[in-house]
Design a protein around this nucleic acid. Structure first.
Length: 467
DNA sequence: CGGATTTGACCAGCGC
DNA sequence: GCGCTGGTCAAATCCG
């Protein structure tokens, strides 16, 4: 991704053909070709080497520390004085190195402490909100109306909380924080004491450190770590907690679902695993003149279909940044307004993302995390859930039996007034981010405002084409 | 010629 | 069981 293509990213509407040329001539990113053999190893290597993570760097440091400095045989042949000098030199350099590492360590500690502090405050806020919501529900008997005693100050606080909560997962991988949130909320709701990756005792710190490290290690891959541990710990294995669900090495986690289902049918917990296939989706509405939004990833079109109720064909894309990346996206024009492009993302990238793709990935991750974590219970009143998609799987979804899930309805959130996309034919919980609404909309949920931040960092007028 | 896209066929899930 | 629909596959085709 070079300057030229970045310009095209930011420049808004760019001719498709032109961008294609730019991409081909300037980008070395590998492409995968549907039915033909793929040089997977090469791709993996390129992808892997392109984005060293912080953890990688840290590991290098650690390795440097750990590796004993040996004296070469040549050195040992010198006189004792020379050898002593060399040893002293080595000692000195080692000391200097140690000092550097120590500094780095201190810096990382500071960062970690800050993150933990933020997380704990967020957690506190979140619990408060959940409790508040529950008490509201009791008093209103399930109606989604803001209680009269909900003063504006509280509302602003809520919004601030949300904003803080979501945006924290933006800057880096959402895995740590949103994962923790998922964990905690689930933990609280289901009284899952046996969670190994999260606990409410004093062992919290190491766990958080680990996850923090992992978050760094994952870089911008935007995984939500929670689901992994949830799955392993829950008696009723729950599906992904978000659209950025865990990617096990297990091939069953890969697409296509139909084939996976065949494999899984022999399993004991067939039902629960089938529900795991009901991945959360993040739908993005944006005004776009070009065929697809440029979200920074590379996609290959593998199908097109005319969906019922919309004369515009729906295009199916899969991510080609990595050979086995399970991420799919669907692109379709809005039937009401042809200038609006509806892009629906599903799945998790199992590879480092290009920088230009991280904004979208982080945002969708955050949105999906919110969706799957059941944070709807603490959403502002203008956020409504949809009853259009009826499915039993939604209730099964990860056992996050917050508020709405009691109704055995799928969680389908609309993050703005104008958002309207239904998944009635699918049983995927879907969250819709509407970029067609001005960001100044005061009532938008934090994640939507966060998304507006994303939209301002991406081609947003509102988008440019993908080759 | 290699890679990307198109498009008809096929399959699974769901409702009746 | 049947038909409808969404989603995927893969051969054919297009394109640079």
């Amino acid at each position: 991704m070079d300057a030229t293509s970045r310009v095209s990213d930011l420049g808004g509407s760019v001719m498709v053909k032109e961008e294609k040329k730019v991409d081909q001539s300037t980008e070395d990113e590998p492409k995968i070709h549907g039915n033909k053999s793929v040089n997977g190893s090469k791709i993996r290597k390129e992808v892997g080497s392109s984005m060293p993570t912080s953890a990688d760097l840290g590991n290098i440091k650690l390795m440097q520390m750990a590796a004993p400095r040996s004296i070469s045989p040549v050195e040992t042949k010198g006189s004792s004085v020379t050898r002593k000098d060399q040893e002293d030199q080595l000692l000195e350099s080692a000391k200097v190195e140690m000092g550097e590492v120590r500094e780095e360590n201190e810096r990382l500690k500071t960062v970690l402490a800050r993150i933990m502090k933020e997380y704990q405050s967020l957690q506190t806020h979140f619990f408060d909100l959940v409790q508040q919501e529950q008490s509201n529900k009791k008093s209103i008997d399930g109606h989604e109306v803001v209680p009269p005693n909900h003063n504006t100050h509280q509302e602003s606080l809520l919004e601030d909380d949300h904003q803080e909560l979501i945006s924290l997962s933006l800057g880096r991988s959402s895995s740590s924080l949103s994962g923790h949130l998922n964990h905690q909320t689930k933990f609280k709701d289901e009284k899952m004491i046996n969670s190994t990756s999260i606990s409410n005792n004093n062992d919290n710190k190491p766990v958080m450190e680990d996850e923090f490290k992992e978050g760094l290690a994952l870089g911008l891959d935007c995984k939500v770590e929670a689901s992994k541990t949830v799955c392993t710990n829950s008696a009723n294995p729950s599906p992904e907690n978000s659209f950025e669900e865990n990617k096990e090495e297990d091939v069953r986690e890969q697409w296509p679902p139909s084939k996976m289902l065949k494999i899984m049918k022999s399993g004991e917990d067939e039902v629960s695993q089938q529900t795991a296939m009901k991945k959360a989706r993040v739908s993005v509405r944006a005004r776009c003149d070009t065929p697809t939004m440029n979200d920074g990833c590379q996609w290959r079109k593998y199908g097109q279909k005319i969906a019922k109720g919309n004369p515009c064909p729906r295009a199916y894309y899969r991510c080609t940044v990595a050979p086995a990346c399970p991420v799919r996206k669907q692109v379709q024009r809005c039937v009401e307004d042809m200038s609006i492009l509806i892009t629906t993302y599903e799945g998790t990238h199992n590879h480092p993302l290009p920088i230009s793709a991280t904004a979208m990935a982080s945002t969708t991750s955050a949105a999906a995390s919110m969706l799957m974590s059941g944070s709807s219970t603490s959403r502002p009143s203008n956020i409504t859930t949809s009853a259009t998609a009826t499915t039993s799987s939604a209730q099964d979804l990860h056992g996050l039996n917050f508020g709405l899930s009691e109704n055995s309805r799928p969680r389908h959130f609309y993050l703005s007034h104008n958002s309207s996309i239904t998944s009635s034919a699918t049983s995927h919980p879907t969250i819709t981010l509407d970029l067609t609404v001005p960001s100044s909309s005061s009532s938008m949920l934090s994640s939507a405002s966060q998304f507006n931040r994303f939209s301002s960092s991406l081609p947003t007028q509102p988008c440019s084409a993908i080759p």
